[in-house]
Amino acid sequence: MPHSEGAPAAAPVPCGHGSGRACTHSHATAASAPFDANALISARGLGITRGGRDQLIDVSLDIAPREIVTLIGPNGAGKSTLVRVLLGLEKPDRGRIQRRADLRIGYVPQRFDSDAVIPMTVERFLSLGMDGDRARIARMLEQVDASSVRHQQIGELSGGELQRVVLARALLREPNLLVLDEPAQGVDYSGEADLYNLIGRLRDESGFGVLLVSHDLHVVMARSDRVICLNHHVCCSGIPETVAQHPSYARLFGPQAAHAFAVYRHHHDHSHDLAGMPHPSGPSDDAEQGKP
């Protein structure tokens, strides 16, 4: 069985597609590259190994103010791990993170235990550790379209209601970076589109940066400024249209996912084993791939 232990974890995975605008990540933001002084948060060469398996391999990224960055990738690709590292909940084994001095993060976690044992109303939850201004809470609940649950117990909310309430809490903190891990879980399809529209609108109004984790590019397309496709390492990144045409995206999400977008031609520069670990394979002709 192929095991990642043999491979030196810190070694960058050859992507081959050094030129072309589809893959802006690979060489410009290598582990040794300087931090982007303007970015809200910058990471260089992040690596995490758990139980002998590489969860993150040489991941570098920057999130600029006002920018909506979407992190996509299949289940188990290390998306949540990357978010946890960026939030400071987990220490990376390798690499560095720089946060802007005034960085204030509003976080909407992936799963919010909805059968909370603790008795608490939504309003109380939204004032925990904050000033608790009732008028402000009411306004924010209205913004996320959850006014009706203000006096309900948090343990009695549906998944979608809870998601909106947690989003309201994140926004009440007046963040300059909003981090949402799969915010559309437990929300139906139209609710999902509403949610992304809401986030986009709030970004336009308040000017915070957004890091959004999703396993589906389609719905987030319209609102993302940049998409990073992650499968333990950064497979590709760029504007949504470009990533949708990138072979890594098609390989990760199936040909149907790419079908909606323009035709592409490309030979894969690396493959993923059953555990999703990237392996270099075959000659690379990616130089062609960025051309129109």
């Binding site: 909940l89 976690p109 235990d113 603790i118 608490m120 948090i154």
Partner: peptide
């Protein structure tokens, strides 16, 4: 009391918020 409550509601959220 406040940090305890925040941890009891959601550990990860509280920690991400600086508890």
């Amino acid at each position: 009391w406040q940090p305890l409550l925040r941890l009891a509601v959601h550990e990860e959220l509280a920690e991400a918020e600086g508890v």
